[in-house]
Design a protein around this nucleic acid. Structure first.
Lengths: 230, 230
DNA sequence: CCCCACTCTTGAACATGTTCAAATCTTATG
DNA sequence: CATAAGATTTGAACATGTTCAAGAGTGGGG
């Protein structure tokens, strides 16, 4: 049997398996969206996909791994959706605001079960932890977005700050995510408000770093952050 | 049957039950400490305590509730352990540093299973979430500590900042906790280093707020924080 | 065409958090 | 004391994530 895979490569050895893998993942994501993570059982996923429970475990080591796969998908979507903004906007505030709002948009369908997601992510031993080794590729890709936000903008920054800022903005995004997870307002209005008000503040803060008395503290903060990295 | 309870009140109606409740909790905490949260089963707890599984559930609605109970205990211990520092130290830096280091000390025996703890706490629907309604008493008590840290210190602050600062310091503690959970260094040396370097920085930042150009941004930050509170 | 090695699939079995109806114990009241 | 009402306790049953030994399918080499 020969099947054309998504990458266009013909690979008769694994084609069948890949099809099953994708079938299981897409079924799982649909059920997660429809009924939430907690209420979706592995049996239901297997059932709906027309395979056995054991088969699902052959491809995904645990229910969490299915979520990890979803997370990777989300990151990809965000990266894509953000391109128009990075290409168009030139000022820091709209660039950053756009990137964060886009994240909300992309993640919207999953808000309902996001709680469970971040519950798992908070466990330092979980591969889903944003600080884990397994998440490094996704995290690096995310930080890269923020590097582009800065590089393409009108911000004038000291060299050391410019190096660290992408990671700091990534941390800010983590904060927004944390707020969003807890946000029960209609249409996550409050999360949007937070973004719209916080980003201009960050902008002002960054411009403050040019004041002599402030510069020293900034340097020290950057140094501290560097020292606590693993 | 009549039993003297911990509070010294004789209460024959509930005395027996309270004894069982305490027996279950202490047994659970011991097992958590000895083998970690994940490896401690409800059956093991019941077994070790000499009661039935259902009995444990009669007093604690879930395994998580046993952890919640532990958390409350921890808070109490911290509050007590912090008194000498608040009574002795007068400068902001040693006061704040002392409070944070004490938290590390009190929590040390549970570092091994802290990951699981904060995993549960990260779920916004969990009663253990530091932002949940159920946690309000513990949170308020914790914020109160930081209010005292500020009030008893030599800091000179604008009124609005002084009102919000306790909660901000509480947030800083949450950050330290997050770092600590992930900290695998021997004797959590890195967490201690973080505290020792971060607190003086906070001190300098707070003194900066008196510079005219900085004052405005500070006010706006305080306003923003107020606006995102529930 | 046959067979070996490998991939893939199955479903029963297991572990553990949780529920619940029934049994037992305790206390207040006549 | 006898009894009803309520508190406490029990253990079997249930739901669901996970494991695993065995079977089925597949493809290349002889």
């Amino acid at each position: 049997m020969e099947v054309i895979t998504l990458t266009g490569v013909t690979d008769s050895a694994t084609a069948k398996g890949e099809q099953t893998r994708e079938l299981i993942l897409s079924t799982a994501l649909r059920l997660f969206r429809e009924q939430g993570y907690g209420k979706t059982t592995m049996r239901a996923i297997a059932n709906e996909a027309g395979v056995s429970v054991g088969n699902a475990y052959y491809y995904y080591g645990s229910k969490d791994h299915l979520m990890q796969a979803y997370y990777d998908l989300l990151q990809d979507q965000h990266r894509e959706a953000v391109e128009p903004i990075l290409a168009t906007e030139k000022a820091f505030v709209p660039r950053m605001t756009g990137v964060l709002r886009t994240w909300l948009d992309v993640s919207a369908p999953y808000h309902e079960f996001a709680g469970t997601f971040f519950k798992t992510a908070a466990d330092p031993r979980s591969p889903l932890s944003p600080f884990s080794e397994e998440s490094r590729p996704a995290r690096d890709a995310s930080v890269e977005i923020f590097r582009r936000v800065i590089d393409g903008s009108d911000l004038k920054l000291a060299a050391d700050l410019k190096t660290e800022l992408p990671e700091l903005l990534w941390l800010l995004q983590m904060g927004v995510v944390l707020f969003w997870v807890h946000d029960q307002s209609e249409d996550v209005r409050r999360s949007r408000a937070l973004i719209d008000r916080a980003v201009p503040l960050v902008d002002r803060l960054l411009r403050l770093t040019r004041i002599p008395g402030v510069r020293g503290v900034t340097t020290d903060i950057v140094t501290l952050i560097n020292s606590i990295k693993p």
